[in-house]
């Protein structure tokens, strides 16, 4: 049988949700963090490509909630619940937050990867969502793909190939 499987792509500072049989992916995570939140029994998952740790950093204009760790995680959870996920069953897998370039001196901006990871972890903890698996830090870019059916997160890096979490 051929399943009609669609890959839902999530861009940078963007989020979306997915249900079986579709899968969801985001490409080229550097210092950004890919947050997957899912309810395995309902086979539904959401993915956010978070770029910055805190929405209070926003300086002007319309707030893009998917861009900041604090707003993205909250909004993703409420989206999932609206689409049938149950709050108590939500779990998370995260990847990204790399330090792509090594600079001497290292201003705060250069540490954005680790700061993003911390902010995501903090926000998930505040919402009582357990992090089942994480592949964060390092210094290589990642492309991640999540299948809500078996809840496996595929992580591809340029030098290490594909890894499953």
């Amino acid at each position: 049988m051929i399943e009609s499987k669609t890959i839902i792509k999530v861009g940078i500072a963007d989020m979306n949700i997915v249900k079986t049989p579709d899968i969801i992916r985001t490409s080229g995570l550097g210092s950004c963090v890919g947050v997957v939140i899912y309810d395995q029994t309902r086979e539904i998952a959401g993915l956010a490509h978070v770029m910055l740790p805190d929405s209070s950093l926003a300086k002007s204009g319309v707030l893009n909630i998917a861009k900041y760790a604090d707003t993205a995680v909250k909004d993703l959870v409420s989206k999932l619940i609206r689409h049938g996920a149950r709050a108590n069953f939500l779990k998370a897998k995260i990847a990204g937050g790399a330090q792509m370039f090594q600079f001497s001196g290292g201003s705060d901006m250069m540490r954005i990867g680790p700061r993003n990871v911390e902010a995501v972890k903090l926000e998930l903890a505040a919402l009582n969502i357990a992090i089942v698996a994480a592949d964060v830090g390092g210094n290589s870019g990642r492309t991640i793909e999540f299948n809500p059916q078996n809840c496996i997160l595929h992580i591809r890096t340029v030098n290490k190939g594909i890894q499953e979490l």
């Binding site: 940078i12 500072a13 490409s27 080229g28 995570l29 550097g30 210092s31 950004c32 770029m51 910055l52 950093l57 926003a58 300086k59 002007s60 204009g61 893009n64 861009k67 790399a98 792509m100 370039f101 090594q102 600079f103 001497s104 901006m109 954005i112 210094n139 290589s140 870019g141 990642r142 492309t143 340029v158």
Partner: peptide, 27 residues
């Protein structure tokens, strides 16, 4: 210029670094 940094990796991962400053104000 700062001392240049080099990376051989996915474009998305590399360029998003340069967008961080900008992303505070704009999409």
């Amino acid at each position: 210029p700062s001392v240049p940094a080099l990376s051989i990796d996915m474009v998305g991962a590399i360029i998003s670094y340069g967008l961080i400053e900008l992303s505070h104000v704009s999409d």
